[in-house]
Amino acid sequence: MPIPRPAPEQRRWWIFGTIAITLAVAVTVWFGISASSGISWQDTGRTTVDDRTVQVRFDVIDPENGPVTCTLVALAPDKSTVGRRTVALPASRFESTRHVVEVKTTQRAVATTVESCQRTPTDTPGVTPRS
């Protein structure tokens, strides 16, 4: 039994649907690949040193083991930013590294987070890769 062909007035919708599904699959694959590669990080805790300083503990996972620049944020109880620090981390021979960094704050911080981590360009002055 042959499969019936769509009516001529519905052909346009079949073409549109096919293109939309193809684009949706392509975008989904692209997001999946980009999310699974590159640098990732994990907040592992904080220690409040005093009302103006907090230590942030975090792990950086970098399959390429290159230098990385991370931005850390300290938050007040109302979730406003009370401290921010961008830190350049040297290259490592390990894929996963743990870091403890102090962030100066304007008031007591109750939470911290790693806002972002990205590859540090190798020609950045003041950043020396570790051997």
Score class of each variant (00 low, 15 high):
1 M>L: 12
119 R>I: 06
1 M>A: 11
59 D>L: 04
112 T>R: 00
129 P>M: 07
91 A>G: 12
78 D>L: 08
121 P>Q: 01
127 V>S: 04
86 T>A: 14
62 D>F: 00
22 T>Q: 12
32 G>A: 05
48 T>D: 02
59 D>W: 01
119 R>N: 06
113 T>P: 01
7 A>T: 13
48 T>E: 02
125 P>V: 08
102 E>S: 15
108 R>D: 05
110 V>R: 02
99 H>C: 07
68 V>D: 05
31 F>Q: 14
128 T>L: 07
84 R>W: 06
46 R>V: 00
113 T>Y: 09
90 P>I: 01
107 Q>F: 07
20 A>H: 12
127 V>Y: 03
66 G>P: 04
129 P>R: 07
122 T>D: 12
28 T>K: 09
38 G>S: 03
78 D>W: 07
111 A>N: 10
105 T>I: 01
72 L>R: 00
47 T>L: 12
35 A>W: 14
81 T>I: 14
107 Q>H: 08
113 T>E: 09
40 S>A: 09
108 R>K: 13
35 A>N: 15
94 F>G: 11
74 A>M: 02
42 Q>W: 07
56 V>M: 01
21 I>Y: 05
8 P>W: 11
23 L>R: 07
79 K>G: 01
54 V>H: 05
29 V>Y: 04
53 T>H: 05
50 D>W: 04
89 L>I: 03
37 S>E: 14
20 A>W: 04
12 R>F: 10
114 V>E: 01
54 V>L: 08
25 V>Y: 09
79 K>P: 02
67 P>S: 10
68 V>C: 06
104 K>I: 03
33 I>V: 15
110 V>S: 01
85 R>W: 02
109 A>I: 05
68 V>L: 12
74 A>R: 00
78 D>V: 11
78 D>F: 08
92 S>M: 06
52 R>E: 12
19 I>T: 11
117 C>W: 00
87 V>E: 09
72 L>K: 01
58 F>V: 03
70 C>P: 03
108 R>E: 09
100 V>R: 14
34 S>M: 14
34 S>R: 15
56 V>E: 01
40 S>M: 03
29 V>G: 10
89 L>W: 02
121 P>R: 02
83 G>K: 00
99 H>F: 11
125 P>I: 06
83 G>H: 01
5 R>T: 15
77 P>E: 09
47 T>Q: 13
129 P>T: 05
4 P>T: 13
52 R>N: 10
93 R>Y: 11
95 E>L: 13
13 W>I: 08
57 R>D: 09
95 E>W: 13
12 R>G: 07
112 T>E: 00
85 R>S: 03
65 N>F: 08
32 G>P: 03
112 T>V: 12
28 T>L: 13
60 V>K: 00
4 P>M: 06
61 I>F: 10
67 P>E: 06
45 G>S: 02
18 T>D: 09
21 I>M: 08
41 W>I: 05
80 S>T: 14
92 S>F: 01
25 V>C: 08
17 G>Q: 12
91 A>H: 04
108 R>L: 10
131 S>E: 12
20 A>Y: 11
113 T>V: 14
